[in-house]
Design a protein around this nucleic acid. Sequence first.
DNA 1: CGGAAGGTTGATTGAAGTCAAAGCCAGTGG
DNA 2: CCACTGGCTTTGACTTCAATCAACCTTCCG
Lengths: 240, 240
Amino acid sequence: MLKKLSKRVELDAGDHAAVLGLPYRLKLYHPTSYIVREGAPPPLACGFIASGVAFRQKLTADGTRQIVSIHLPGDFIDIEHLFLNLGDHNVQALSEVQAVNVDRNALQKVILERPAIARAMWIDALVNGSIFREWIVNVGRRDARSKIAHLLCETALRMEEAGLIESVATFEFPLTQEQLADAVGLTNVHVNRTLRTLVADGVLTRNRRHIAITDWDKLKSAADFNGLYLHFDQESRIVS
Amino acid sequence: MLKKLSKRVELDAGDHAAVLGLPYRLKLYHPTSYIVREGAPPPLACGFIASGVAFRQKLTADGTRQIVSIHLPGDFIDIEHLFLNLGDHNVQALSEVQAVNVDRNALQKVILERPAIARAMWIDALVNGSIFREWIVNVGRRDARSKIAHLLCETALRMEEAGLIESVATFEFPLTQEQLADAVGLTNVHVNRTLRTLVADGVLTRNRRHIAITDWDKLKSAADFNGLYLHFDQESRIVS
DNA sequence: CGGAAGGTTGATTGAAGTCAAAGCCAGTGG
DNA sequence: CCACTGGCTTTGACTTCAATCAACCTTCCG
């Protein structure tokens, strides 16, 4: 299971041993439960999702929520805080999440001392950063239709890349419409209406969370989607 | 000059030597000139701003622009691409920018091999990430007034932290209203109107880019500002 | 069978966008 | 030293996309 991290990016040597030697503890999080909390010192462990979906989130003073990223099995959930003293946002389980919580200090140590692993973690962190930037664009400069289409493209591709679905053409979208709204900066009502126009325009079919893309090209162009920012090329060096 | 980077975060030993030994080249960028380009392989060097202001930016298909971050003297401009094969966004000079371009491979090497420096760079990257997340919230879930107030707070504090201004009460804001609009996801017209309401409400005074905050508390609360995400606490371990 | 969470709909409002024209400097060059 | 330019900023009239509010409907599940 932990081999996933080494496999992602970089050829290893005795790194394998170092990674496998990391002290960890399995933990199950129920939907909506918090994995990391804003303002609190980060947990003693840095998690890796074995199964389930989690998301990062921040709240504003008036109680609205902005979802800031979504994490699938195979993602690290908290390198973002690995070297920081305080959590700057919340991480919550979306579904039932099985996490591998790796001891923070031990992980820091391995990262600081083993170049190959360090490189892998750097790439992971930088790709996450790239996704954050794309989300700023999505939320800041696209209209409702594009925002939603964009998030659908991204999620489908990432799920495929993570091996969770065989094809990008049909999948179970992990968010409710309300959560989707909070991810793209809209209201659930408007998300609902916009989804229906996508259906009406023959871009996709839908039943609750189940989505079937009928016209991927149309979806991509509605989304103004350019997958470069996901940096899948970096992950192709799979070895392990 | 390069000592700045070591001073930021971590006590060093022979690291000093390693940093000072890095091959670099000074380069001057004129306003609007590109430092990094989306879709292109990242430059052979990773820059550090000695003076001037730069920003990151992405364009959408319909030609609108979203500014994704702003960088002040003392910031690294391209750790975001240090371990990636392709640029996922553009970096442009805003003013005249004097950059210290450090050789990419050499910097990678130092980061991978010297734990103290690695830690410093990690913190830098993670804090950047935190700022990206806050921008997602800003752009996604706040109204025009808060968005603008928030960016003003952030910029003022960062400028102060960077030692560019003595007090947060009065400063030269580096962006035009149009750029400000692109940073917060509004139009220049609406930014203009909103700025005037802030003036009308006695929050600040303004003359072109020159800003004087008359009521910092009002500004902060209009902004829904909580500076945690800037992680200034991490930077207080200044030593060098 | 009943309740709750999520999804759908309609009517209405409102915040921000659009378009287009002026106004206002700061710097340039005659 | 003044007129001229071009880049910003400001203003007004009008439009539009998305928010709001408030039901109502579905589906799932105990």
